[in-house]
Amino acid sequence: MIMSRKFQIDQEEFNDLKVLVTGGTKGAGRAILKRFSDAGAIIATSARKQPEDRRDADLFIEADLSSIDGIETLARTIKTEFGVPDIIVHSLGGSSTPGGGFSKATEEFWQQELNLNLLAAVRLDRLLVPGMVERGTGAILHVSSIQARLPLPDSTMAYAAAKAALTSYSKALSKEIGPKGIRVNTVSPGWIMTGASEALVTRLAQSAGTDEATARQGIMDALGGIPLGRPAMPEEVAELCAFLVSDRAGAIHGAEFVIDGGTLPTI
């Protein structure tokens, strides 16, 4: 079993800054939200349903961000109850397309993947970024994926295409609003050992009649190997996100940072 990572945190680093984290109730998004909360930020997040644990979020908005109505609900609530964010982290993402290659990815699945992994960020930026530009300061982080450059054809083709578009969009946005005081960067994780990943390892081990270490290695082999020998932990992704939007990274803009343990085989 891979253990969670703990880091020493400056509890005042983001003191009183307003941070919006999409997808902040599960997985890496949950770790990102907690990282900012632990450093003194005022946090807003959203999900389709009320989470059981809301202790690290100051404002929770129930909204489906894969829909235009959900995006408008979130943006309206942020503007009226939260104010202009200092930092936006778009960590929302995922894939529900079944295996079987391109022929199984129907029009409905393609639209779902695009709405969730690309258009949610595009639509939300369109509604909230003008306020940040008017103020003249802020930071935006788009969480993409190494699958933008290493797509897996069996079940995540549409997801990979959407994330590739998100990475390109993030770069274009950085060129437009960087001169107006808003820094924009992209984080592209590889395999992250979230609760969902742990459950997948357990299921694979049980179905194959083997142990979890063997099942975990099988997943890494399917990815072409992870030279570091393990997936990233959610807390490690959160640390990278916190650094990139902090004053410590004040000259980093329009860049993509990969956190994949060396999975990508090329530069």
Rank of each mutant, 00 (worst) to 15 (best):
G93Q: 03
A139S: 14
G100M: 03
T77F: 03
S66R: 04
N117H: 12
G131C: 12
T77G: 07
A105K: 05
G94Q: 01
E107K: 13
L74E: 12
I78D: 02
Q112K: 12
D69H: 08
S155F: 09
S145P: 12
K104L: 08
K104D: 04
G99N: 11
S66M: 08
L74W: 11
K104T: 11
S144H: 08
R76C: 02
I78K: 01
Q147P: 03
I61S: 06
V143R: 02
W110Q: 07
A121S: 15
I88H: 06
G93V: 03
P98M: 12
V89P: 05
A63T: 13
V89D: 03
E72A: 10
L114I: 15
L118F: 10
G100I: 00
F82R: 04
T137Y: 11
I61W: 00
G70D: 07
Q112S: 09
L59C: 11
I146E: 04
I140K: 01
T80E: 12
I140M: 04
I88K: 02
I87G: 01
H142I: 03
G83R: 00
G83I: 01
I68P: 01
P130M: 10
R149Q: 13
N115I: 10
Q112A: 12
H142N: 15
L152A: 09
L74H: 09
K79Y: 04
S67H: 09
G131A: 11
P130N: 09
S67C: 13
Q147L: 00
D154T: 13
P153L: 01
S155D: 15
V84H: 04
D58K: 06
Q111I: 10
P130V: 12
P85K: 00
P151E: 00
D86R: 07
V129H: 05
G94W: 00
L128M: 07
T73Y: 06
P153S: 11
D64R: 13
I71P: 01
G138D: 05
V122C: 08
V84D: 06
H142K: 06
I68C: 03
I87Q: 00
S144T: 14
S67T: 15
I87S: 01
G83V: 03
E107Q: 15
L74M: 14
L59A: 06
K79F: 03
D69A: 13
